[in-house]
Amino acid sequence: ETVLRVGSWLPPTHAQNAVVWPTWAKWVEEATEGRVKVEMEYGLGHPKTMFELVEDGAVDASFSYHGYVPGRFKLTQGVEQPLMGASAEAASVAHWRVHNKYFAKAQEHDGLEVLALFTHGPGQIHMANPINSLADLKSKKIRLGGGVQGELGKRMDVTAVGAPAPKVYEMMQQGVIDGVFIPMGEQKSLRLKEVAKHVVALPGGMYLGSFAMFISPDFMDGLSEKDREAIRSVSGEKLSAMAGAAWDAADKEGLEAALADGVSVNQVAEDGAMAQEFRDLVKGMDNEWVAHVADRKVDAKAALEELREIARSYGK
């Protein structure tokens, strides 16, 4: 029996740790007929460090957010571009397929074997005080994470405040920030429902966030061919879809928790004023990304089109 150590972060109660990893662990144990047993480990270090801890074999598998390592991961930002208009599950499946067809050869995940690619649910606007239009966000102090959020913040002319996600609660409570761009699930898991009482949910959200689950090639080499294939058979697209679906479900729970706690959630309609405002605001962002990744020597434009096409037609 081989132990496969998964290094994780985020609270143990988070969907990624309570649903995604345990489900995959069960799949792996079944597929290998119990020869590979998955164990979770927390507190290994900063999330961005997981890429290298797995590469160097300090832990066998893990997951991380691509935005934590700017410069190394540029192609993964394709899926994060605004106006995808799909659920995390659909986007995750598209992410996986397009990665293998177009992006894998650019070797951004050099040193790792990618198990799955997925995205969190659509990022929305969580504010302490209500806003009536996106123009109201001008000069508001907004906590921005990495990736496309920075560009969105620039275009909205907000005052950007940088901080790790667990700090958001404290900063909202004290008024250091007026709001945050983050998926709906965080109303529950970061307890934003206590401090961010006004949410604007744009149709399909503003952006997505790209994540990878990966495993050490050395660990895979140490397994028998049969077990290697067994692990691969329960990963890839199947795992990507499951992870995306779990994050979607977390968003749904977040929305329910927020509503139950009296948070006002403005669900903007497809033809609503703010939705139109947003579409105007992000015009050209995808082309900027295509230009930005020119040095990767892949057909990013075709990839993005295919990505959107797969995601939008997923499950239909």
Partner: peptide
């Protein structure tokens, strides 16, 4: 060695794009 690997992969900081 970790530094060389990071430079080879063009890792930079988010806003100022300083090579890590």
């Amino acid at each position: 060695e970790l530094a060389e690997r990071s430079l080879r992969r063009d890792e930079i900081t988010e806003l100022l794009e300083i090579p890590v």
